[in-house]
Each structure stands twice: as C-alpha cells, then as structure tokens.
Design a protein around this nucleic acid. Structure first.
Lengths: 200, 200
DNA sequence: TCGTTCAGCTTACATATGTACGCTATTTTG
DNA sequence: CAAAATAGCGTACATATGTAAGCTGAACGA
C-alpha cells in the first residue's frame, strides 16, 4: 500500500511525463492547455491544481528537467573525451544522439528559447549558459588562454551545435550523418581560428 | 474615389500591418487568433475571409514579407561593403540595425524557425538558405575556394549571426554593442580557421 | 440606367478553455 | 477509534474561438 504522499508524487510524475509526450513537433509549452495535459495524464482538469498552481509552473519544471538531462549528457561526453577520442567528435556525436532519442526534450529547449514566454526564454538561456561555461572551462584548461577568450570560443561552438541540433530534428538518419560531419568541420574552423588569433 | 480593387488591397495591407504589430515579444503566429487580428485591423472577424482563406495563409504571407525585408538588408549591406569597410563589420552592424528597429520582423523569423508549424519552419528555412547562399557566393568570389567549402563557412557565419540577433532582441543599447563586438570576433575565428584549413 | 458583384457587417452556434465550488473516499493524525 | 486533512472528482459558468448564413450598400459593367 502506498502512502498518500507517495501516490501524490507519482501522479505528479504522470503529469510531467504526459506533458513531455505532448510536446511533439506541433506543440509548445504555451499551446498545450491544462485540460489537454490533464486528459493525457488521466486526471480531472481541476485535479491539476493539486500539483501545480498554474500551467506555467509545469512549464518551468519541464525546462528544469530538460536542463538536467542536458547536463547529464555533458558529463557523459566529458567521460568519453577523457578516454581518448577527440573532443569535437565525441561532443558532436553525443549531442546528436541526444537530439535524436530525446527529441522532445531538446525540442522543448529549442522552442522555448525563442518562445513567447520571457520566463521560459530566461530559464532556457540559463541552461545554455551552463553548457557554454563548462565548455569554456574545458577549453581554458587545455589551451591555456584567458577566461574571456575561452568563453568567446565556447559560445560560438555551442551556438553552432544548437543550430545543428535544431536541423537534426527535421532530418532522417542519413541526413543527420551529413549534418554531424558538417558541424565537426565548422567547429574545427572555430578551434583553428581561435588558436591562430590567440592573444599572447 | 478609390476603386473597389484598390480599397480591398488597402484593407489587406491593414490586416498584414496589424498582424505584424501583434507579433511582439509575447505573441507568435500560432498564438494570434483570427479575431484578434480582425480586431486590430478594425474589421469584422468574418471579413478576414475575404482576404485570406485561413490564418495560416496570413502567416505565410508575413514570413514572405519578412524574408523580403531580409534580402533588402543584404543588398544594402553589400553596397556598403563595396564602399570600403570590412565585410564582417558592415554585415554585423547592418544586421544589428535590422534586429533593432525591425524587431518584430526578425522575431517572426526567429520564432517560426523553431515554431510549431512545419510549413512556417520550412518557409523560414528557405529564407535563411537564401541568406547563406548569397554569403557563400560572396566568399567564393573573394577567396577562390570550392563552392561547398564556401558554403560551410557561410553557414557557420549565418548561424552565429542569427544567434546573436536573437540575443539582441532582449538586450539594451549598450549590451547590443558588446554583443556585436563579440560576434565580430567569432566571425573572424571562422574566417581565419576556414582560411587556414582551406583545401588546395 | 439598372441589374450584378462583392467587401464588410451582424447574428448565431458549436466547441474549447481556465477555474470556482462543493462532494467523496481514503489516508493521516491525535 | 474518532476527527481532520486532502487527492481527485463532477458540475457549472464566464469567456474566447473559428466559421456558417444571410444582409446591405456601394462600385461595376452592360
């Protein structure tokens, strides 16, 4: 027998999962309605309020979870980088895997980054900032450049990665390979250029 | 006295202008309703149908107009480039001017590029593709590199430009200057890197 | 000049939404 | 074991939406 608290936590999870499932290629956080989420979660519309004050609170929760998934991805990538393969190749491959089989999660970030809610946009921007900062750290350690210079490079790289990720959402498997290779070359441009223009 | 045809063209224009005005930082093409547009244009909801079959048709029209504005921007930038200043500086400055004082137009492209309508996404992608193609031409002429290599470089640059444009929408005047300078350096990375890795 | 066309209007309806209110059944607490 | 708390439900209402149907007056073509 489950405690009341535990049961509540589970239906909260059900709501969140249902929302993620609704966020396909034709829905965003602002277009899904409370009733729609409730329907998908198998609860009464009014029961939703037992878990969230309003639907924006759900939205912020989803963005947080998506950001967490991204940070976990980064950790995994860094482990693989430590094991030998080039940083660019591994990062790109890991990222593309993410956009592929967690497409709804990545799409959420992508969409709300340019979405209609200032709060969501800010939340996503924060997550991307983490992404950039950690890459900047990595670059600074490896190349011995000033922090702001490493940041410049990291930011450019992350932006290209996200752009390619966006395209990958509309691509099939073979197009994704092409996309990944193109991205790797472009990241190499930045790495090479940043190195050539490095301040002394 | 105005001809009936001319009057119709004018209210069509009124509708389009009203829609652009509605597309501020908290609205996108899918969130504006037919009735809202009609209200803003000062016509009855049902009169809308005399000009567009549905609201998606309006949306595509807006994307087309936005793309046209962008192409005009490119032309202007190329003229100024011909008159001496560096390509990167002029392009960035022109672009930033665009995102600043035609913010609703740029935001439309940005938002629908990652939006919920596949048709709108495709339409915006086409416009961006034009943007990339023309820059690739420019690069190929100046640097004498293969077409696909110039494309690689142009694509990376345009992606950075658009990303910075997105950020500029949330920035004030002084932040925009910082943003522009950062972008210019990053574009230089790509130019330098692409040159260093140029195939022979 | 007179019948035709048609942009724009008003009215109307079926549908979806957010959320207030109060009930019930079950768990929790004292 | 009785009393309090509470997750979830059903009902209800005010509001917004897309769009069908039909009318009107002004521009148009003969």
């Amino acid at each position: 027998m489950l405690s009341r608290q535990e049961k509540k936590r589970r239906t909260r999870r059900t709501i969140i999962d249902a929302a993620f499932r609704l966020l396909d290629e034709k829905q965003n956080l602002s277009s899904i309605s409370l009733r729609e989420v409730a329907r998908a979660a198998g609860i009464a519309p009014t029961s939703f309020y037992r878990h969230f004050n309003n639907i924006d609170e759900l939205g912020l929760t989803l963005v947080d979870e998506a950001g967490l998934a991204l940070r976990q991805l980064m950790r995994q990538a860094r482990i693989e980088i430590a094991s030998g393969t080039g940083i660019i190749n591994t990062s790109v491959d890991t990222f593309m895997l993410f956009t592929c089989d967690q497409s709804n999660v990545f799409r959420l970030l992508l969409r709300e980054h340019a979405g209609t809610s200032a709060a969501f946009r800010a939340a996503v921007s924060r997550e991307i900032q983490h992404f950039i900062d950690e890459l900047a750290d990595f670059i600074r350690n490896g190349n011995n450049v000033p922090a702001d210079y490493a940041f410049l490079q990291a930011e450019a790289m992350v932006k290209l990665v996200f752009s390619a990720g966006a395209e990958s959402l509309e691509a099939d498997q073979s197009q994704r390979v092409v996309l990944a290779n193109r991205l790797k070359k472009q990241l190499l441009f930045i790495a090479k250029g940043a190195d050539a223009l490095k301040p002394r």
